Simulated assay, not measured.
Amino acid sequence: MINFPKKQLPTKSNKKLNYEFYLGIPFYLMIVILVLIPIGLMLLYAFTTDANNLVSIRFTFDNFIEFFVQPTFLSSMLESVYLSLISALICLLIAYPLAFILSRRKLVTQKILVSLITSNMFINSLLLAYAVRSIFEMIGNTFFNDSRYLLGTDLAIITGMVYLYLPFMLLPIYTHMAKLDKNLFESAEDLGANKYQTITRVVIPMSLSSVLTGFMMVFLPASTTLVITRYLGDGKRKMIGDLIDLAFKSGKFGYGAAIALVLAVILLIFVYLIKKLDKYEGVLANED
């Protein structure tokens, strides 16, 4: 007698898996359209000549060579990385203790203070940059009899970056610290750790992943900004965002794509270095 295999009925887990897959289809389409295709086009333009004509397309490194052999372009890249790195570090020095203090307050107080601190995220960046410019113009008129004396300096540009991007550093760190299990602090105290040791050995190691997120959210837009250099740089400083904008306006898409790729590699290096320090990635208690 031949025993035919019985047809297996779909289990609840399989139904749930199929249900989640279908719900995720719009997300997958957005990833393909807004992420994968633009990255593919950027790689195509950066490593080829005449990418608009598939018949005469040719692989080349000329776009990268042109960037690295031009001292002005290379100095703009280094200046962008320098100013963005300083701005991100200042944002971190301000946001980290502020996030820790906020996470230890009452829930109502947290909501009010976070709303006040992040309120400038709902204001147009052009208005914010122009407001900072007006402050530097008033200071220049008062102390130097020249409204444009401070515009274009490191102080003006870094101040503008910190003012615009500080909330992007604060929010991920605060969100992470607010979810830390309060029993961790009591356990550290029971084991004989003082407040300084608790912060350095418990809080900081477990919050490095949020620091990485905040760093990326500040460093990347700061290094490619056009608003800050236009209003606070006063035309005296050319950063990497200005080079990319100039390349696309002049029709040199391959050159602009090559610049963007170089900047992306630099950012990935920073991400890798910070990741190496994160021994507690994804460790969160009190998530339920």
Rank of each mutant, 00 (worst) to 15 (best):
I31P: 04
I173H: 09
F248W: 12
V132G: 12
V265D: 11
P221C: 05
L263E: 04
Y272Q: 11
L102R: 09
M1H: 12
I25L: 14
G152S: 10
S209L: 00
L246Y: 12
S210N: 07
F122P: 05
E186G: 07
N141A: 01
S223Y: 06
S209V: 02
T49Y: 06
K111G: 15
M1Q: 11
G241D: 02
T109A: 04
L208C: 02
L107R: 08
A88P: 00
L85F: 11
T49S: 14
F215C: 07
K279H: 06
N63M: 04
R237V: 15
P10Y: 08
K195G: 03
R104C: 08
G235R: 03
P172W: 06
F270Q: 09
I123F: 01
V35Y: 14
L34N: 07
L151Q: 13
A285D: 12
P97N: 08
L34V: 10
S207I: 04
L273Q: 09
D50K: 12
L127D: 03
S103Y: 02
A51P: 09
Y96Q: 12
A258S: 07
F122M: 15
M169S: 07
V202G: 10
V32N: 06
L151R: 10
E79M: 06
L128M: 11
E189C: 06
T159N: 10
A247H: 08
L170F: 07
L74N: 05
K6E: 15
L29W: 09
Y196A: 14
I240T: 13
L151E: 12
Y19K: 11
L267N: 11
E66F: 00
K249P: 00
I157F: 04
N3H: 12
D242Y: 01
P167A: 06
L208I: 15
F143N: 05
L180I: 13
L83E: 00
F21T: 14
F215T: 14
L89N: 06
N53W: 07
F73G: 09
M121A: 04
D50Y: 06
R201V: 03
T48H: 09
L34H: 03
V211W: 05
A88H: 01
S223V: 07
G40C: 06
G233A: 04
L43N: 08
P5W: 03
F47W: 03
D50C: 00
D50P: 01
L277H: 10
L54F: 14
Q8N: 13
D181S: 10
F248S: 10
T159Y: 02
L128D: 04
N63A: 09
F215W: 10
Y96P: 07
D181F: 01
K275H: 13
S223C: 09
I65K: 08
V227Y: 04
L267E: 08
F185E: 15
E79Y: 01
P205E: 04
C91T: 08
A285E: 13
L78V: 09
E287F: 01
S209K: 02
V81W: 01
V203C: 03
L226H: 09
A193G: 07
A247W: 00
T49R: 09
D154L: 00
I274M: 15
I157Q: 03
T60V: 02
G140S: 05
L243C: 02
V81D: 01
V162P: 02
N183I: 08
R201G: 07
A264N: 06
L93S: 14
C91Q: 07
G152F: 06
V69A: 01
Y280D: 10
L107H: 08
L44C: 07
